[in-house]
Structure formats: C-alpha cells, structure tokens
Amino acid sequence: MVIEQLPDVMERFKRGEDFEIEFYGQGIERVVEFTFIGGDVEVGCLPAIESTPNSFSEIVHASEVSEILNGIARDFAESLLRVSPNLVSIEPFSCWLNGEF
C-alpha cells in the first residue's frame, strides 16, 4: 500500500507540499502526515479511525525524509529487479533503480 502512493508522495515532497501516507491494513489503520515547517518536516502518526488511540508527531529535517523516501523507492526497485526484471523497465521503477527520484 505504500508503494502505490510513493510516486505522488515523492512528487509532492519535491514541490514542498504537505502530504500523507495512508496505512489501512487491518490492525494498522494509521495516517502518517508530513507537514513542512521551513527546512524541517513535522511527521505525525494519526489514527485513521477515531476508535484507534495514540497519535504522536516529531520534527525531522527534510533531508532525512528525502533519504527515507528515496531509500524505500530504491530498495523496492532493486527487489523488483530480482523478482521480476522485466517490470523494472516501467516508470517509475526504472527511474528509482537509476537513483532518479
């Protein structure tokens, strides 16, 4: 569920726009929100449904968020290369494999 959201998330990050990643798997049901504050990003983990308790947030430098997002993309593309090499030629996987985020 993260990989399908990643192209839009990475594009919004590049533009400096706030974004979120939704985790709706049973038992997880969380939304991770990313809000730009200057050169930093507030990362908040919120319940996707009101009956789920515990939300929290922390502030990290935007470069750390970039490294994490790029790492997820790169690692997925490298895994895809091993499992199904013919799919790596499809965008955005080919870009991710070449380090183009």
Rank of each mutant, 00 (worst) to 15 (best):
I28A: 09
S55F: 07
A73G: 12
P7S: 03
I90P: 07
E17A: 05
S57Q: 12
G39Q: 12
V83L: 08
S66H: 09
E58N: 07
R30D: 06
E22W: 10
R15I: 02
P85K: 07
A77S: 03
E17V: 10
P47H: 14
L87I: 11
V31F: 02
E91D: 15
G71M: 06
I28F: 13
A77L: 01
A77P: 04
G38Y: 04
R15H: 05
D8W: 01
S57T: 12
G27Q: 08
L87N: 02
V41S: 07
E78W: 03
Q26K: 15
R74V: 14
E33I: 04
F93H: 00
E11G: 00
P85C: 14
P47A: 11
I37T: 09
E58G: 10
F19H: 02
V43M: 15
L81A: 07
E58K: 14
R82I: 09
V43A: 15
E78N: 07
R74T: 03
E17F: 12
G71Q: 01
P92Q: 02
V88D: 00
S94D: 13
Q5S: 02
R82M: 06
L6V: 00
E22P: 02
E64S: 07
I72G: 04
N86C: 13
V83I: 13
E17T: 07
D18L: 01
I68R: 06
R12P: 05
S57N: 15
F19L: 03
N54T: 14
R30C: 15
N86Q: 11
E20L: 08
V60W: 15
P47Q: 08
L6C: 04
Q26P: 09
S63N: 09
N70S: 13
V31W: 00
E91R: 15
I90R: 15
G44K: 10
N70D: 04
V9G: 00
R12N: 15
R74F: 03
R30M: 15
V41I: 13
S66V: 13
E20C: 03
I59W: 08
I59L: 09
N70W: 00
E78Y: 03
E91G: 07
L81R: 02
F23E: 00
F93K: 01
C45M: 12
I72N: 00
E42Q: 12
L6S: 04
A48E: 11
I68D: 00
T52L: 12
L87K: 03
R30L: 13
S51A: 11
A48C: 10
D75A: 10
K14D: 11
Y24V: 05
I21Y: 01
P53A: 09
V88T: 06
L6M: 13
I37F: 09
D18W: 02
V41D: 06
A62K: 08
F23W: 06
F76K: 03
I37E: 12
S94K: 14
E33V: 14
F34M: 01
N54Q: 12
E11H: 03
I90F: 11
I21A: 01
S51W: 10
G25A: 09
A48M: 14
E42C: 07
Y24I: 09
E50I: 07
H61I: 11
R12C: 14
D40W: 12
L6I: 01
R12K: 12
E50W: 13
I72F: 14
Y24M: 09
E91S: 15
D8S: 13
V60Y: 12
